[in-house]
Amino acid sequence: MDFDRTREYVQHHSEAEGKAQRKIIWVIFWVLLGITGVEVGLGLSWQSIGLAWAFVKWTFIILTLIKAYYIVAYYMHLKHEYKNFIFAVALPYLVLVAYLIVMMLTEAIYVHDIHGLI
């Protein structure tokens, strides 16, 4: 008896569908490359064009999150899974990491201020 039931959930598609998918893959490649290019360009030039560091920093972080979204949603295909599954994967992660980041920032700033007092 065949215990591996992978076959029941395997995805196949036709040549026409494949062509459409390849187009999406390449569009996203250009998006990822473009964002990386903007990041590098900004990293090299923000001082000479006189931007505020806080603005540049948050731009980097937001662009990174956009890149991460495209990789996970399209390349890892998560966007097209069942909604239950998306939540099962993304929610535990996002909740814990948001908590970690808040703790990290508040505690690190506190520790930093303590250094100044010693």
């Binding site: 535990p92 970690l100 690190a108």
Partner: peptide
């Protein structure tokens, strides 16, 4: 997901030390 937690832990601890110093 579990591996992502490991990397997040590393990067968050990096952020902690960086903000402390």
């Amino acid at each position: 997901v579990s591996d992502a937690f490991t990397f997040s832990g590393l990067l968050v601890s990096y952020g902690f030390m960086r903000h402390s110093f």
